[in-house]
């Protein structure tokens, strides 16, 4: 009886191990880990890449910080599209990327958005926020690049001290957008690309009030498909695709001043 129990236990255990062996033998698609704010754009761009190169791809979307942690502990991704430049930089320092693969693929833009009042403009934000009952949503300045940029603008505008205790802080820009879009919060500073993607209108924040939100990509050192990864990087940085990215509400090298 004891033996049959052990047998059952070991059988399950080995099935588990075997299944993990088998899964590695299949031909793997190119795995692209992408920050959730860029994932919808990437989804629209990828079919062209697949057709052009015949390379199959998989998208793993997540929060930049989370994806960074996973990569640090050996996540089997090939390319990482971050929403910032900080994490790609860190990965470079930690020697986890293919040297010189770190590239800026887009610059994020901020926009003020209110679902109730689409005509709301950044320039008269001051008048509106005098009314204490109105709250403003932004992403967490400590962890999210869009949040940090929003903070910079609010400081520049002289609103930070007045507003800082009335802000609704989202974990990431995706959460902030959802809060505003669902009208849970009347207005918020969101990514312009989010508005574009959902065909909404908002008011762009002046470029010069925040330091550029560089979104960088890296090819990970662990990749077993360096060539395909390189192909993908080139594809994303090609002028044709960069133009398309710009149409989704990002700035690109071509339309930035620096």
């Amino acid at each position: 009886m004891l033996i049959s129990y052990l047998r059952l236990f070991l059988l399950t255990f080995f099935t588990l191990i075997l299944s993990s062996i088998n899964s590695t033998q299949a031909a793997q698609p190119l795995r692209i880990a992408v920050s959730s704010n860029f994932a919808p754009v990437l989804k629209q761009l990828l079919p062209e890449f697949n057709q052009q190169t015949g390379v199959a791809t998989q998208i793993i979307s997540g929060v930049t910080g989370g994806l960074y942690q996973q990569i640090k502990y050996g996540a089997p991704y090939d390319v990482f599209l971050a929403a910032d430049s900080l994490r790609p930089q860190k990965l470079a320092q930690e020697n986890l990327i293919i040297p010189h693969s770190r590239k800026t693929y887009a610059f994020g833009q901020l926009a003020l958005y209110s679902a109730k009042n689409p005509k709301l403009s950044w320039h008269n934000l001051k008048n509106i926020t005098d009314n204490k009952s109105k709250r403003l949503a932004i992403a967490n300045p400590k962890t999210a690049p869009y949040g940090k940029a929003a903070q910079q603008c609010l400081i520049k505008q002289g609103l930070w001290e007045q507003l800082k205790n009335h802000l609704i802080i989202g974990n990431n820009i995706g959460q902030t957008f959802q809060q505003v879009r669902s009208q849970a919060v009347t207005m918020g500073i969101v990514a312009y690309s989010q508005l574009k993607l959902n065909k909404l209108t908002g008011s762009l924040l002046p470029k010069n009030c925040y330091s550029p939100i560089k979104q960088q990509l890296v090819i990970l050192k662990n990749t077993s498909q360096l060539e395909k990864s390189q192909q993908f990087s080139n594809f994303l940085l090609s002028s044709k695709i960069q133009q398309k990215i710009a149409q989704f509400g990002y700035l690109t090298k071509a339309n930035t001043d620096d």
Binding site: I17, S19, S20, I21, Y73, G74
Partner: peptide, 26 residues
């Protein structure tokens, strides 16, 4: 952290199965 290829458990698993433990179905 425990499953990462750098860890003892991760190493052991890698040697036993030939594939990393973290980010696998197992």
């Amino acid at each position: 952290i425990a499953f990462a290829p750098q860890s003892t458990l991760g190493q052991l698993w890698l040697q036993l199965t030939g594939s990393p433990l973290a980010f696998s179905f197992s």
